[in-house]
Amino acid sequence: MALTQLSLAEQLVLTLAALILFTSFLLLAQNRIVSLIHTFAWQGVLLFVTTCLMAANSGRHHLFISAGLTLALKVFFIPWQLRRLVIKLDIRRDVEVVGGPSLVMIAGGVLVLFSYYVVLPIRELSFLASRNTIAISLAVILIGMLMIITRRKAVAQVIGFMSLENGLFFAAVVATYGMPMVVELGIAFDVLVAAILFGIFFFQLRSGIGSLDVDHLNRLHEVDR
């Protein structure tokens, strides 16, 4: 089906999905910590816009509440807190060398293909071009995981984790108009607590192993050496 045959709202959602995927790739490649946090906040903004669009378009007004939660948590609170911690721990100027950047980007591309391959058998499509959107949300989740694997700095891993959560949120919003309210609130609470705990962990890591580099976490082994 050609893009122009879809309704305007559907076209917008697809564009936003593409942009969210794009920010995921930006996160994957970005090696300055502060820019990483900003990119993450922009991803949150895109998610917020998508949620609002879905809420307005479908007339399910409880989605506005979850849009508000996204705005508060993903756009303001978490980036603000991460930024504050980065300044406090004085790692603002840290540049992380991502090992084999081109290889990582290719791996990200492969993950996108893989996501499309996985959702291909889903026959039934809902109002939205949901095969596309589900595939993209899965790709965002997998790229978040890839980011956690390839990064060595704790802060970057946390951003990977949170961007993975963004992928989940996106999936919930575009595939099903958001989860039921009680679940939505529960998830937001969990994300909030997780964000606070990550902050506590940064300080523990700093005082315990003297660095936020997870390569230094090498004391526990599967078997004794």
Partner: peptide, 27 residues
């Protein structure tokens, strides 16, 4: 601290997959 960090990241990422599964069920 190492154990705690591993626990947090691994279980957090792992359980996120379960949320995706839940979303699919809801879908």
């Amino acid at each position: 601290i190492e154990a705690g960090w591993k626990y947090f990241i691994l279980c957090g990422v792992g359980i996120a997959q379960a949320l995706f599964g839940t979303v699919l069920i809801y879908f």
